[in-house]
């Protein structure tokens, strides 16, 4: 499943306007400890995190996740979105909790 399909199926907002929406999602990784994410997230994972500051862009870039999903409608800083767009990172926003997101994405990827 591609990032854009997932966004559509789960009614998520695409916060970044860029053309990297067509990456394949290989699974989900949920964690808010950045150095843990750095060593455990796998390429293509959709990464769910409650962090919204700039550094999520660097982590997403270096781990090559397919997108970052911010749960529970948390507001994302403008400079994070801008940086993500520059680096070709997609940030999605959802009203669902991390748990609900995992559950729904699991169903969709199964």
């Amino acid at each position: 499943m591609k990032v854009n399909e997932l966004a559509q199926k789960l009614d998520m907002k695409i916060l970044t306007g860029n053309e990297t929406l067509f990456k394949d999602i290989t699974g989900v990784y949920v964690c808010d400890l950045l150095s843990w994410v750095m060593s455990h997230a796998e390429k293509g994972n959709a990464w769910i995190t409650i962090h919204t500051h700039l550094n999520i862009v660097a982590v997403a870039l270096l781990t090559e996740v397919s997108c970052v999903i911010i749960p529970e409608n948390l507001a994302v800083e403008e400079n994070t979105i801008k940086k993500a767009e520059e680096e070709g990172i997609v940030i999605l926003s959802s009203s669902l909790s991390a748990y609900e997101l995992c559950y729904r994405i699991h169903e969709l990827l199964a």
Binding site: D32, L33, L34, S35, W36, M38, S39, T49, H51, H53, N55
Partner: peptide
């Protein structure tokens, strides 16, 4: 609070 401080940075470096 920013998500740093797991104490995993140096172990990650060693691992990689």
């Amino acid at each position: 609070e920013m998500g740093f401080g797991a104490g995993m940075g140096l172990p990650n470096i060693k691992r990689y």
